[in-house]
């Protein structure tokens, strides 16, 4: 394609997700000022349940908020592509899926699995204060074999809950009552 002029390095063009580093936390959706540009939906019916982050760049105003506030810093960035015109408007919609992590005691949504693993890596030694992060990482490492985590217990708090992936409220209750 012939461009009218050379694109400056910092040109704010079409935003691109980096699916390697994007964890699907939803920060970009929160900070996006344009209605309908970035949106997020948690689909609990799907198997496995996923979070869908939808981006339609025909509504994008190239403000760069998503890039500036990205949790992993590189999850979404504005590329140098300056001519994103398409013949069909539907082609501007892209959707990415992220597997969700639920509390293994009450079934409440915690976040995406990638987010937990990213936190494990970011926190380093501090992650060892939090069994939920360790188990999430361990599940990732041993994907093929049986998952270390357990199914929702649903029963009252018990000592084995310490070795489950827990939502904040269950974590709090466990720490208070046991």
């Amino acid at each position: 394609m012939r461009l009218p002029s050379e694109v400056p390095e910092k040109y704010r063009g079409k935003p691109e997700f980096d699916l390697e580093t994007c964890v699907g936390c939803g920060a970009c959706v929160n900070v996006c000022p344009t209605p309908g540009c970035l949106s997020m939906e948690d689909d609990f019916e799907a198997t496995p349940p996923v979070r869908r982050i939808t981006h339609r760049y025909d509504a994008c105003i190239s403000c760069g908020n998503c890039e500036a506030n990205c949790t992993t810093e590189t999850g979404i960035s504005l590329s140098n592509e300056l001519d994103p015109a398409v013949l069909n408007r539907e082609d501007t919609i892209e959707t990415h899926e992220y597997e969700l992590q639920f509390c293994e005691k009450c079934g409440e949504l915690i976040g995406t699995k990638k987010h937990l693993i990213w936190l494990y890596e970011k926190l380093g030694a501090l992650a060892y204060t939090n069994p939920s992060l360790l188990i999430a990482k361990s599940n990732e490492l041993h994907k093929e074999s049986q998952e270390v985590g357990q199914q929702p217990s649903g029963r009252d708090v018990q000592t084995s809950d310490f070795m489950r992936i827990l939502c904040p409220k269950c974590k709090y209750e466990l720490n208070i009552r046991l």
């Binding site: 936390c25 939803g26 920060a27 929160n30 900070v31 949790t71 976040g111 987010h115 936190l119």
Partner: peptide, 9 residues
Amino acid sequence: TGCGSCAIA
């Protein structure tokens, strides 16, 4: 940004 990292951590 409301990403929820602190809540998980």
